[in-house]
Amino acid sequence: MSPRAPVDDLDARLLALLLERPQVGVLGASRELDVARGTVQARLDRLVQQGVISSLAPTLDPSAMGYPVTAFCTLAIQQQAGHEDLLSHLQGIPEVLEVHTITGDGDLMVRVVARDNPDLQRVIDLVVSTGVVTRTSTVIALAELMAHRTNALVGAAVERSPSVSGRSLTP
């Protein structure tokens, strides 16, 4: 017996529904998908446990919240310095949205938001204030051409699964 695919047809239909209408709820999803409420809840629980769904929280738009400037900062850090202290520092800055370790010229990629360019300078000054950062390079995003998306991954995961290929993803 082959291992179970992380996402099957019902999972994909559930994920597509939640991405389209996140407020649907478990009961609404069970009605839309024509499955038992307990089945929907069990699927959600499993998807959360497997890390497919990290949370069921709403997606917030920083721009609509008064932070229209998005920037990406590449940080080079002292090699003997641990990431833990710097990460703790960055977590204390509300305008820091993401931190990733990277390959290339820097060590970390940090996505930040700001109210305007002078505020961005304040945020960058906070980011580098620990003394651990040896070099930084910042680029400002001018326009978002494609927002963060995962919808296409749902369909692709199902298409790669031999047990469910060819089935429709429409709820």
Rank of each mutant, 00 (worst) to 15 (best):
S137V: 12
R4Q: 01
G25L: 08
A152R: 11
D85K: 12
L86W: 03
S165E: 05
G28T: 04
A157Y: 04
G38H: 09
D85R: 12
S88T: 13
D11F: 01
L33F: 00
D119L: 15
P171G: 02
T103Y: 14
V128Y: 00
D61A: 04
R115P: 08
G131S: 05
S55F: 10
D61T: 01
S137P: 12
S161G: 02
V113Y: 00
T134W: 06
V48P: 05
E95C: 05
G166K: 06
R4N: 10
T59K: 15
T103N: 10
I93F: 06
V24A: 05
A12I: 04
I53G: 02
T101C: 13
P58T: 05
L33Q: 05
G82C: 08
E32Y: 09
R4L: 07
N117G: 13
S129V: 05
M1V: 14
G25M: 07
H89T: 02
R167Q: 11
V110D: 00
D119G: 10
E20G: 15
V24H: 06
S30D: 11
A157I: 08
A76L: 15
G25T: 03
L153P: 06
A5L: 03
L86H: 03
I93G: 05
V48K: 09
G106V: 00
R13P: 00
T103A: 15
S161P: 04
L44P: 00
D105P: 12
T101K: 13
E32W: 15
L15Y: 03
H100T: 14
P58Q: 11
